[in-house]
Write a protein that binds this DNA or RNA. Structure first.
Lengths: 199, 199
DNA sequence: TGAAAAGTGTCCGAAAACCAACAGTAGTAA
DNA sequence: TTACTACTGTTGGTTTTCGGACACTTTTCA
């Protein structure tokens, strides 16, 4: 297959326009209420072109969610280590850099929950996996269920991420202390018994 | 020829993209520094397509300036009467409504001064004409030159317009008094001698 | 000054997008 | 039920855009 499979610019533009249109429409309608015709009208593309790119509106949503999921997945490990080590500033900074131009898109897609296209659920699932792995590796003699603590950690991290995406980097200082306090509380539960006595 | 000569959507999109690209580039470069290649790169259009729409970058600028000039010209008379009668709020409100989506574009184009494409100069010229006509019609026995007073009036009005375009409607109240005071001072000079005694 | 680099404007075959029309499928209201 | 309206996917002929090459001019800088 082609090593360099460059897409025609027209395809890129068309897909960009269609995706932007969907996001725009999601600001005022639910995904179910949006029709292919709506998307085409707003993006100034013909319906035949739409169907040349996507099977239907669900396929469009799938591909968008997949794209952001892959982008996030490629860095979960890094982001995870950052929250575990209390590097909240680095976490937020790196996250916002990765998502730079896509913040708005991700925030909007977080509100859509379709069976096979749920960005928020995908993010949570990826994080949960990391937390489970981490807990199993580090904590040997745990007195609380792994699933519970993984869920706690995941939700803390997810909250930080969603807050960062909608508020940006400027207000970070105001919340790092609170986040770290909660993080510590979670970490104590996860550490093996013998390490607890260190505190 | 076709009575209804509807343009292909692709043409509309291409021209929109090219024009947006030029405006964007004007935020960081002068018009002279901008190349056709720059515009094409930013707008994701091929150079051959650019030349299918415009003769060169000057033609592009001309067409944009012409468009806004025509839009403004279709209302000068109305806007003129508004300032003469001291209806500053109506002037600003109507102006902003007409220019709604084009404020940014107009503000940017006001900074470009090319021999055959100077939006600011066009606006001024249209206003000056109105003021001259007005003064000649109303004032019979003037003791100051028509050109001077027309220029004064035009500059006052132009200042209001530029201020409104960049500041919007919200801050209007803070300046109407000042504008009206200056307007009155100009109007007094324009009125025939016998009317001056009314004050 | 002279050679390299960057920009201009034009051309053409191939690819993509357009439009309009089509049959088919809900959902809705008389 | 029927008839109406709105939306879905698909098709084929037409128009536009693309990409890359071309000859040419202008700018850069060693």
């Amino acid at each position: 297959m082609g090593l360099i499979m460059t897409k025609d610019v027209r395809k890129i533009k068309t897909e960009r326009d269609i995706q932007q249109a969907l996001l725009k429409l999601l600001e005022s309608k639910t995904f179910r209420q949006i029709t292919v015709a709506d998307i085409c009208q707003l993006s100034l593309t013909s319906r035949s072109t739409f169907y040349a790119h996507y099977l239907d509106k669900y396929d469009l949503l799938d591909k968008m969610v997949d794209g952001f999921t892959k982008l996030f997945a490629s860095r979960v490990n890094l982001r995870f280590n950052q929250i575990v080590q209390g590097e909240i500033n680095e976490l937020v900074h790196g996250l916002l850099k990765d998502m730079e131009d896509n913040r708005r898109a991700i925030i909007i897609l977080f509100t859509v929950h379709e069976p096979n296209a749920d960005l928020e659920a995908n993010f949570k699932s990826l994080l949960l996996q990391e937390w489970k792995k981490f807990i199993k590796e580090s904590g040997s003699n745990m007195d609380v269920p792994v699933d519970l603590m993984a869920s706690m950690g995941m939700n803390l991290q997810m909250t930080v991420i969603e807050w960062a995406l909608s508020h940006g980097e400027s207000e970070i200082d105001a919340v790092t202390a609170a986040i770290n306090a909660i993080r510590d509380a979670i970490m104590v539960q996860i550490q093996p018994i013998n390490k607890k006595s260190d505190l």
